[in-house]
Design a binder for these strands. Structure first.
Length: 492
RNA sequence: GGCGCAUUCGUCUAGCGGCCUAGGACACCGCCCUCUCAAGGCGGAGACCACGGGUUCGAAUCCCGUAUGCGCUACCA
């Protein structure tokens, strides 16, 4: 018997920006689909009309595209099971809810939200578990008619079984069982005609022939509700796999308090999608006991449900940063330049002429490639290559164990040496300056330090000679002269 | 409160009864390389495998309790 094709879905609700936890769920679904040569479906769960955020769908899809997670069916990619926005599928949910009412597995509820609120706070005050008191569960026809007068828009509630228990087999956690009496008569269809998540996801996962539901662990206690719905609707439930949660540094659910949470923010901060995918894949999954740099293709080839862990993971930014550095270092120089360009255009000082010279950018990139952890920090690493002038206090020119005079002499001697030659490549620079240090009775580091500040305006930079080569002879000489002027003012 | 899930270095994790005096990675510390900063190399510190009972010749690995953490408990998903 041929196995059913793998069809998995990522089902975000467009109520805000997708955060790293959501995206990790998307990634695992995608990896599984690609590994199994199945289908990856994006379904928009826009059933909460009040909380829906304009533009959120586009940001979600953009995030997936950025990471390279392509989908086979989705809101912008019609398939055989559309539409892929739940707001466009209302008739299916209504039909299912009515079927359940007709079968006696669901009922109309006329309770006002005010009454429900009062009921809940009273329950809490009495230290009872909060839940619907089932006031409308067994109404007679007459009672229903009279309630309808005061409440035009009833909801439909599920008639949860009062006895027995419901279990399901979770691929990651094994058998999980819930007592039915702990299951509320939850709402299936809201007063506005929209379904709740429970109804909508069950109906759609069936209609879209989803084979595996992979979602975050927070859904595990809702799953018995879904299993019951499948049963009452006469449907075969898909397989369940509840993924471990991703936590903030204080071990609580990820939120704005934890700083960067939305995936687009990482993109804007200059993280590479490849690094993000690699890092996220390792939050709850592992290849083996020692591999942590894994490209996406290897991920697809090796991904398996069996190697998904059970325990929640703290999102560790430091490791992400390290990993991003690894990926930046592995880039071809042209590619690094291409990716860095927008960050440079945006963050280089206003005094730098736009558009930037791409060839010049390419020449600069090798000097910072192994020093940058994110693309967004590149401008601060290289601005002195681009600015017409550099600003720094004269004191910076005076290195450790040196005084102003020594620094001045060193720079004057350097200037003289460099003016006497046109050669400005790494080796000739080194051949001139290194002996010069000795002549002056300085350590190489002392001389190079003064020249570094003169030429770049900072004490930390890429290696001096490479920097000078890229900067060019004219600019270097000019800046050294400026430095000499600065120092002589000070000496007087 | 009720229900559920989880529990290996600070963090991510390997481990699916003997290979574990618990391995790797990030971060941290030291040394080497070195013109600064990185990168790289080498080394170090860091987990009595939450705790307590079992089962077994033998347990981080199986079972039962306890504790702790997290999640759910909405006409939110």
């Amino acid at each position: 018997m041929p196995e059913k094709p793998v069809r998995v879905r990522y089902a975000p609700s467009p109520t805000g920006l997708p955060h790293v936890g959501n995206i990790r769920t998307a990634l695992f679904n995608w990896l599984y689909a690609r590994h199994e040569k199945g289908s990856f479906i994006v379904r928009i769960e826009d059933t909460d009309t009040a909380r829906t955020v304009d533009g959120a769908v586009e940001v979600i899809l953009e995030s997936l595209r950025w990471l390279g997670l392509d989908w086979d069916e989705g809101p912008d990619k019609p398939g055989s099971f559309g539409p892929y926005r739940q707001s466009e599928r209302l008739e299916y949910y209504k039909k299912a809810a009515e079927q359940l009412v007709a079968q006696g597995n669901a009922y109309y509820c006329y309770c006002s939200s005010e009454r429900l609120e009062e009921m809940r706070s009273a329950q809490i005050a009495r230290k009872e578990p909060p839940g619907y008191d089932r006031a409308c569960r067994n109404l007679t026809l007459e009672e229903r008619a009279s309630r309808l007068e005061s409440c035009q828009r009833p909801v439909i509630r599920f008639k949860a079984p009062l006895e027995g228990s419901t279990s399901f087999n979770d691929i990651i956690r094994g058998e999980v069982t819930f007592e039915n009496r702990s299951i509320d008569d939850f709402i299936l269809l809201k007063a506005d005609g929209y379904p709740t998540y429970h109804l909508a996801s069950v109906v759609d996962d069936h209609l879209m022939q989803i084979s595996h539901i992979m979602r975050a662990e927070e859904w595990i206690s809702s799953t018995p509700k879904h299993v019951l719905l499948y049963q009452m609707l006469g449907l075969e439930p898909p397989q369940f796999a509840h993924l471990p949660m991703i936590l903030g540094s204080d071990r609580s659910k990820l939120s704005k308090r934890h700083g960067a949470v939305s995936i687009t923010q990482y993109r804007d901060e200059g993280y590479l999608p490849e690094a993000m995918v690699n890092f996220l894949a390792l939050l709850g999954w592992s290849l083996d006991d020692k591999t942590d740099i894994i490209n996406i293709q290897t991920l697809v080839e090796n991904f398996s449900l069996e190697r998904i862990g059970k325990t929640a993971a703290v999102f560790n930014r430091e490791k992400l940063e390290w990993m991003n550095g690894v990926y930046i270092r592995s880039l071809e120089v042209d590619e690094l330049a291409r990716q860095a360009l927008p960050f440079l255009e945006k963050d280089l000082p206003l005094s730098v002429k736009r558009p930037l010279d791409e060839e010049y950018v390419k020449a600069v990139m090798p000097l910072i490639q192994e020093r940058a952890k994110t693309l967004s920090e590149i401008p601060s690493l290289v601005y002195f290559f681009f600015t017409p002038d550099i600003e720094y206090p004269a004191e910076l020119l005076i290195g450790k164990k040196m005084d102003a005079d020594a620094a001045l002499h060193a720079l004057e001697a350097t200037l003289e040496k460099l003016e006497s030659t046109q050669a400005f490549d790494h080796d000739s620079l080194e051949q001139r300056l290194r002996p010069l240090a000795e002549e002056l009775g300085l350590k190489a580091g002392q001389l190079f330090g003064a020249v570094r500040v003169a030429v770049t305006g900072v004490t930390v930079s890429p290696p001096l000679f490479e920097t000078m080569m890229v900067l060019g002879r004219n600019k270097c000489l000019e800046r050294i002269k400026q430095a000499i002027k600065k120092l002589s003012c000070r000496v007087d």
